[in-house]
Each structure stands twice: as C-alpha cells, then as structure tokens.
C-alpha cells in the first residue's frame, strides 16, 4: 500500500503509466474502430490530403487514412517491443543467473560472450540477421532481442553475485538446500525488480530502435501500418505534407516517453539508493 502511495506521488511516473495504459487500450480497440479497408486500401487520387474531418490526421502517399494506420500501428509496436523484451529476458536472465552463481570457466565464457555482444553495433547485427533470415519485422525482432539480452545478463549477474556472497546463501548451502531451490526461491526474487525496470525501459527503447531500423528498411515491410516505416516512407514529402510524418512521429514520442517515465518511476521505487533519498 505504502509503495502505491509513493508511486502515485511521482507525477511523471503516473503520467507514464497513464500513457502506457492508453496505448495498450488503443491497441485492443483499434481493430474495432479502424477497418482493414481504411488501413490498407488507399485512393491514389486522394493521396497526401491534409487533416480534415474525414481524415483526422490526413492521408499518406498512397491515399490511406493516417489516423487509422497510427491506431492500428500501436498493436505492432507493442507486439514487437514485448517480443524483443521477452526474448532478451529469456536469454539474459538464465545466462546471468548461471554466470553469477557459479565460478567455473563456463561463467567466465558467458560473460565474455556478453561482452562481445555488447560491443556489436546493434544496427549492424540487425542487418546481418536480416540478411540471414530475410528482411522483415521478425528478423528485426530477433536482432534486437539478441543485442538486448546482454543488458539483462549483466544486471542479473551483478545482482546474483551480490546475493551469492551473502551469508545466508552459504548457510543454505551448508544445510543442503539444492542449487535450483536457492536460485528460484532466494536469488530470483532479488533480481526481479531490476529486471522489471530494465524491461519497462527496454520496451520504449525497442520501439525507438525499431523505428530507426524501419528508417533503414530493415524492420517492418509495407503495407504494415508501422510507425517507423510510415516516417521513413513519408519523409520525402516534407515539409509540404507534414502530417504524414508528424502523427506517426508523435505516436512514437508518446509511447516511448510513457515507457521511459514509467520505468524511471519503477526504478525509483526499487533502487534502494534512490529510495533513501526520497
């Protein structure tokens, strides 16, 4: 209860939560509001029309309704972000737990591999994977997941090391508790909060990076109503047709802002160093 009150006092974090919830709600209702025709079928003779009562956000370069596309785009954005984060957590957390808990050469190897992945420019890895398994959102997701797990691994590693060196774990081992039990019951809860914080910020970060990948033609493929792709496709029509870039841009801005503010707020709640200072 206390923690909730504390959270509610944090205005930006609440704002972030509101934004995230709205985007999620939008993603749920979007297919009910925007028909597939409005999203995919354009009228070429009505292309690049400014915002009006018919087309609230105007039309894009193929005469499609931008409002409908921005709304439906939220589904893709959330789906990508969620998949990437889940993939990264699925790789990073077990790897971090293993490396942090044991002290074998295997642990060292995991951390060296983590270093290697941290040093690869995300963009180039994404490109290489896109070459391998074909261009599209899937390869962008795999690529981002593969570049994002080291962050989780590092976080979990550090936290596990900390818990590992505490007396109570030694004691547990001494009384014969199994390793898996120690990991699951005692270590995992301790690493959960930093992982959740990382994951929340990672959601926003992923949406942003996917947009950059779309800009380079590696991410979403046409005719998907992807925000980043919409900006990349429409930037050629600036400044006359400003709406085609601006509304998807605002959608990205709002969503990323929401996740980041929420993540920051959560971090303040769980980070003991910052907690003290409040």
């Amino acid at each position: 209860m206390l923690i909730l009150i504390k959270f509610l006092r944090d205005v930006p974090a609440v704002l972030g939560a509101v934004i995230v919830l709205s985007v999620a709600a939008l993603a749920v209702v979007a297919p009910l509001v925007a028909s597939p025709e409005a999203v995919f079928d354009g009228n070429l003779l009505e292309r690049l029309q400014p915002p009006s009562s018919v087309h609230l956000f105007g039309t894009d370069n193929l005469g499609r309704d931008i409002c409908a596309r921005v709304m439906v785009g939220s589904r893709g954005a959330l789906l990508v972000a969620l998949s990437v984060v889940v993939l990264a957590v699925a790789i990073g957390v077990p790897a971090g737990l293993y490396a942090g808990y044991t002290t074998s050469w295997g642990s060292e190897l995991v951390m060296r591999i983590t270093d290697v992945f941290l040093a690869v420019p995300q963009l180039i890895l994404a490109l290489a994977i896109a070459q391998l398994i074909g261009k599209g959102l899937e390869s962008a997701m795999v690529a981002l997941g593969l570049t994002y797990w080291p962050f989780f691994c590092r976080t979990v590693y550090a936290e596990t090391r900390r818990v590992r060196s505490t007396l109570f774990v030694d004691a547990l081992e001494g009384i014969g508790a199994s390793r898996s039990r120690i990991l699951m019951v005692h270590v995992l809860p301790n690493v959960a909060s930093p992982v959740i914080v990382r994951a929340t910020i990672g959601m926003g970060f992923t949406i942003l990076t996917t947009a950059v990948l779309g800009f380079l033609g590696i991410g979403a493929t046409p005719p998907m109503p992807d925000w980043g792709l919409a900006i990349a496709e429409s930037r050629e029509y600036l400044p006359d047709s400003w709406w085609a870039v601006t509304f998807p841009g605002l959608a990205i801005l709002a969503t990323v802002l929401g996740f980041n503010l929420l993540g920051d707020g959560l971090r303040d709640l769980v980070d003991p160093r910052l907690r003290r200072s409040r």
Partner: peptide
C-alpha cells in the same frame, strides 16, 4: 519529461 522526451523523439524528424 522534457529530457526523456528528447530521447524519445525520432531524430530524423527533429533534424528536419
């Protein structure tokens, strides 16, 4: 909000 907004803004949009 402003600083995080700066992070979240699409760079090429802002640049143009």
């Amino acid at each position: 909000i402003v600083t995080v907004g700066g992070l979240a803004i699409a760079a090429f949009w802002f640049a143009i």
